[in-house]
Design a protein around this nucleic acid. Sequence first.
DNA 1: TTTGCGAATAACCGTTTTATAACCGCGCCA
DNA 2: TGGCGCGGTTATAAAACGGTTATTCGCAAA
Lengths: 224, 224
Amino acid sequence: MKILCADDDKDLLALIAFTLSQAGYLVIRAGDGTTAIRAFASEAPDLVILDINMPGASGFQVCEAIRAQSRVPVMMLTVRGEEEDLVRALELGADDYLSKPFSPRTLLARVKALLRRAGMENSAPLTAGRVQLDTQEHTVQVGTRDPVRLTKLELRLLQMLVANAGHTVSSDRLLMQVWGHKGSGDRQLLKQLVHRLRQKIEVDPAAPQMLQTAVGAGYKLIVD
Amino acid sequence: MKILCADDDKDLLALIAFTLSQAGYLVIRAGDGTTAIRAFASEAPDLVILDINMPGASGFQVCEAIRAQSRVPVMMLTVRGEEEDLVRALELGADDYLSKPFSPRTLLARVKALLRRAGMENSAPLTAGRVQLDTQEHTVQVGTRDPVRLTKLELRLLQMLVANAGHTVSSDRLLMQVWGHKGSGDRQLLKQLVHRLRQKIEVDPAAPQMLQTAVGAGYKLIVD
DNA sequence: TTTGCGAATAACCGTTTTATAACCGCGCCA
DNA sequence: TGGCGCGGTTATAAAACGGTTATTCGCAAA
């Protein structure tokens, strides 16, 4: 089991690494955000622990980048009393958080819980029904049709929909996950992106079968 | 299912509210003890979450006041390592406690456990009798009838009524919850909204069975 | 440099949803 | 009896929403 830990506090990082490797996990370390993102791509860890305040890229940015291509469990480390950070982290798709200072015992318990929860047999995290995402190639394949290339934003959008296949995802949530912020004028971008995505994955884009809109609520991906 | 949350930490309150409403609960907020007591009286929540340290009235006092008139489940929030607080809280009749910091997931699990223990859980968060709300899809389903799509305002109104099923809710409170303000001319909007909602959920909208009006007071949802 | 592509900005259309307004009927009470 | 408040209903105007298309911008590859 491979765990990626990112924190700019060398001592804390060492403590975390020690605790986890003691428990039998393989720990990958990153001292800043950009390193973390790179490490994530090259190591494909089973779980990620991110400090929020880091040089390079903040924990938020790293989390966002990771969520753009994977659903691995992400745990955020925060300083106590920064609850608004938490809201943001969770909205970005983090699965749990731990506020500093924490005991190694707590850390371990939470890590185990998170891994258990993830089932760890993430089997094929990026498929739903006949829809198959390939984040490496940036492509989707629907049924036996030819794979279609997707842009970065299209991929992120579809990823969110695949992850919640069958349930509608609110526009706000999509906005947040795809662009990382919730500007008011950005509704336009979403409907455009949906439009482009439909052109690519629907048999008849004018009468969408898979990417349906839930009026007033958001969008959802229908899989049989 | 209605939950009253009292905490003077705005950010934490926001986090709690976010977590719970995400899970489909209707959250009533209070920023201090006295507000909490007043809100408890007017809202009759199904569960109460209280911070111990609050201006106005402490969590202890609020808990005591609530216990003087109700057996509703109460969960206390404590800071870690203040065990004597816990003892006192439990003696005052609190049903559970959670020490900060806690993860949203934990909170949700404990809340559900508490509701289950109280026997309130028999249904999903937002159902009352044969009425089933789906806040994600923006739909209601009544009995075995086909689900009906609701607009944003209709959903909020119905949510309020479902949370108070069987009891009449004053027009002012509905106005407040649905529109967020209490303008004078807005009575018109309410009666119109009620009208539209009846068209959607009543068998015979001209003779409402479920969404009944309490003349001079407000409206109430009748469930068997 | 030009070209090409993804993304952002903007505008248009038809539909749905919400707000404004008026009218109806009823019970109440001076 | 007539004025008044209240709730229900209907009509219409205004705003928001979703789909679509065209244009512009920024950037990196050719």
